[in-house]
Design a protein around this nucleic acid. Sequence first.
RNA 1: GCCGGCGUAGCUCAAUGGUAGAGCAACCGCCUUGUAAGUGGUAGGUUAUGGGUUCGAUUCCCAUCGUCGGCUCCA
Length: 593
Amino acid sequence: MSTKEDYENSRLYRIRHSAAHVMAEAVLEMFPDAQIAIGPSIEDGFYYDFDLPRTLTPDDLETIENRMKELIKAKEDFVREEVSAAEAKEIFKDQKYKLELIEGLESGQEDEDGNPTDQKVPMTIYRSGQFVDLCRGPHVENTSEINPHAIKLLNVAGAYWRGDEHRPMLQRIYGTAWETKDELKDYLWKLEEAKKRDHRKLGKELDLFSSNDEVGQGLILWHPNGGMVRHQIERYWDDKHIANGYDLVYTPHIGKASLWETSGHLGFYKENMYSPIVIEDQEYFIKPMNCPFHLHIYKSQLRSYRDLPLRFAEKGTVYRYERSGVLHGLMRVRGFTQDDAHHFCRPDQMPDEIDFTLNFSIDMLKAFGFTDFQAYLSTKPEKSVGDEQMWHDAEAALEDTLKRMNVPYEIDEGGGAFYGPKIDLKVRDALGREWQLSTIQFDFNEPERFDLTYIGEDGKEHRPYMVHRALLGSMERFFGVLIEHYAGAFPVWLAPKQVMLIPIADRHNGYAHDVAARLKKAGLRVSVDDGSDRMNAKIRNAQKQKYPYMLVIGDREMEDKQVALRRRNGDNPGAMSVDDFLAIALDEIERKV
RNA sequence: GCCGGCGUAGCUCAAUGGUAGAGCAACCGCCUUGUAAGUGGUAGGUUAUGGGUUCGAUUCCCAUCGUCGGCUCCA
């Protein structure tokens, strides 16, 4: 895997950045009064932000793309020039966003994209054809290095100037660029493939879940098929937790305002919480997190150092206000169930506890078929509680674990929660996309606020350390990721329906039902298609529903007391005894393949 | 929340300023079938909701709701 720096030094990066300039040139030809903002390379492509007199249409994109191809063929050189602030201001005198960037550069506080920096960047411009941009580069030497058959404009979207919602909304054109036509083709294929795997589409096709106008946005209805997958996930999860020193707990969905005062949520998290409900003159809030309840379970009795670590786990359903525009299928919802747990331990146990948690997390994700992980260590944010030393120690402890366990990680400076630093784990799915699932978070805040203690060896009260963690993240998001990872073809152990029996003619129905009963008794999830369709149609339907096993039953099978196995991947092992099939199925379930 | 697109039958999608159409699914038949769609028929829509323009709106305009692509924010 190449790093970010490698990418920034790559030819592809220069090609994309240069393509962004060419695009801006084409747009400026079309709209001479356009105000241009910034246009960098990004993963898989580039964009440029514009302030235009009217909104762009898909037709405009085609026009712009065609013009770009002409400009590329014009073989224009990219010419770099270093300029003074005054010269820059003269060149960009009609470009208000550029002038703003120039001021930032001049102050030495910002780079040419307006990001804070502590080193003063020399002011440079790049010219290509009629176009000139304030830009650090680098670029290709000449537009001819951009392959006109390997670029494509993808879509237009709104984007705030400098990503700030209080500033003007600009129009952003996204494009992609590659070195060769084939690479572009591969990329577009990947986009198509991603569309096919979209969990929202598969959720409908496989009848897994839905959401509904009348219920409310961001609130998920799990249908029987989705419910079965979830049940299997949860069953495995429960067993694993019990086997690994966790206690399962259950807590209510609402709690009194004073609870959330104590926890600090009303101080730090209120904008994500729903309005209170009033019961007998007392305000109650729907929980956005489970921790305060778990803390009270801890506090329900005196704890000895011998009791620690304590691990309370709960699949706790929480509700958070999310702005309507951010909701997305199962990935971002307003009501979700976290696979939550809180660990309480002595300070000396903390390193082991973190090691354990990260290990457990990775094992859990591996069981579901994820093998490629990337960790992010998030450090102290601006708004935070706890003293510097605690933060430093905790961050060091987390980092030590990552190093010990050899998990590749990046530091997300200032990305921690207000109450402590955290490790987030992202998994890479079958298409190479990253999803954030696990999070392991230190908490300096709540043990203090709730005055948690344990009695130490010395007979005195001590403050325990606390870790929050969610491994799958939330059942909703995890399910969404699972659907996309497997394109709906879940491993047998998770598949909502495992076996479809396909009698060829009506006279085989009785035997098919007998076989079904036998398989059900062995614990398999079995259906019988005893309708009047032809066998071919029955197979097609079962394939589309992604049944892992189809068992065809005709005269021969009935005669020999067998079943003819067909797998959803098209493999056709043929006739075998019911016991042989059962052995295969149960083995694959056991091995989670 | 913001910018832009979209909302027609359970699903996928047509069509038009003048009574809304197909395929699949559903239902009722016929066929009794050997590894991805046998066949005939029936039924199904106040064109998301509420206003407005118009002789007439599903089509044009506005608002609301939902949804999609992004931005910002996150499990």
